[in-house]
Simulated scan of single mutants.
Amino acid sequence: MVKLIDVARTAGVGAGTASRALSGNGSVDRETKERVIAVAKQLGYSPDVAARALRERRTRTIGLLLPDLANEFYTASVAVLQQELSDAGYQLVIASTGNDPSTERIALQTMIDQRVEGIVHVPVDADLVLPTTVPIVQLNRQSASRQAAAASDDLAGVDELTTAIVHAGHRDIAVIVGPTGFSTSRNRLLGALRAAERAGIPQSERPLDGARLRVRHAPLTVDGGAQAVAQLFPDLPSCLIALSSRLVMGALRECGDRGIHVPESLSLAGYGDPDWFSIWRPGITTFAPNLTEMGRQAARLLLAQLAGEETGPPALIPGKVQVRGSVTGLSAG
């Protein structure tokens, strides 16, 4: 096995210089650093991370807690988050909570027991008392505790989406949204309600002068979306807004099973923008949050905390309404 001293001898430097060149800690001139790195690659040197962690009393790891590892919603955020942290010398340790509060508590404690230096966290239990021994940044959702956070400006985005739907002539609208305990559900629903109120559309189960907005809360799953549509049938709205990509998929499945054609029989708008939203024809009109920027901001907020800096209020990141063919009366041009 190639050791650090082998790299140092071949590069013609001392072991301390070689260590600083490879770790990025300490001052080494550029030419020497490049020579040491080239020699390390040539010899196939791999640093003993565990030993270095013991010496420095640092693990150089960051914990990431996600509700669902299979959810494409987080893919773009995690990719840029990982790159930003890697560039700063940190590696991610990832765990899934399954949207279960008890699993979330265990995962958090496990991360701390593993001595991660910081945590990026998509909260499940809004009232969970979070540890103060390690910097924490919340991603997408926010809990009741005051934490640094990087989240999409869903309130403004869904307001804009709903306003566009109203302007397209739809005044009988139904909204499917996630559980009430999630900040994302509350913000998305509030955006729809605010736009409807501004347009004079009441939140009601029965139409008043042909106008109403109905709300259905559902688990953020395909089955949840399907069951919400089943609850609305046969008294369908003019336009359905399903405020997660999984809810959209469930709504489409139920519509297909019942012979309801989108958009001929029912207009449909969504949230998020997975690839299949544009591949499915005639395309899903949606509010697309800026997932890459969410990941970038989460990483930078955490790195700022690790450097002892104040991070201020949550970073709310604007997204974009994508107009496609699933809502009648709307035009992309």
Rank of each mutant, 00 (worst) to 15 (best):
K3V: 14
I5D: 15
G16V: 13
S23C: 10
D29I: 12
K33S: 11
R35I: 05
Y45I: 10
Y45F: 14
V49W: 10
A53S: 15
E56F: 11
D68T: 09
N71D: 10
T75N: 08
V80H: 05
Q82E: 14
Q91C: 09
Q91S: 15
I94P: 01
A95P: 05
G98H: 09
D100H: 10
I106R: 14
Q114T: 13
R115D: 04
I119K: 00
H121R: 01
V124L: 02
D125W: 05
A126L: 09
D127Y: 10
V129L: 11
P131S: 09
T132M: 11
L139A: 03
L139T: 00
R141T: 03
Q142R: 14
S143Q: 06
R146A: 14
V158K: 02
L161Q: 03
A164I: 07
V166I: 14
H167I: 11
H170D: 04
I173V: 06
V175F: 06
G181H: 15
F182V: 05
E197Y: 12
R198C: 08
E205G: 13
G210L: 09
R214A: 13
A218E: 01
A228G: 11
V229R: 01
Q231G: 15
L236P: 04
S245P: 04
L247Q: 07
V248T: 06
G250Y: 04
C255F: 05
R258C: 09
S267N: 07
S278M: 12
I279H: 12
I279F: 14
R281N: 14
A288G: 05
T292V: 11
E293K: 08
E293P: 04
M294N: 07
A299F: 04
A299H: 04
R300A: 03
T311M: 07
L316R: 13
K320L: 12
S326P: 03
T328G: 15
L330S: 05
G333V: 13
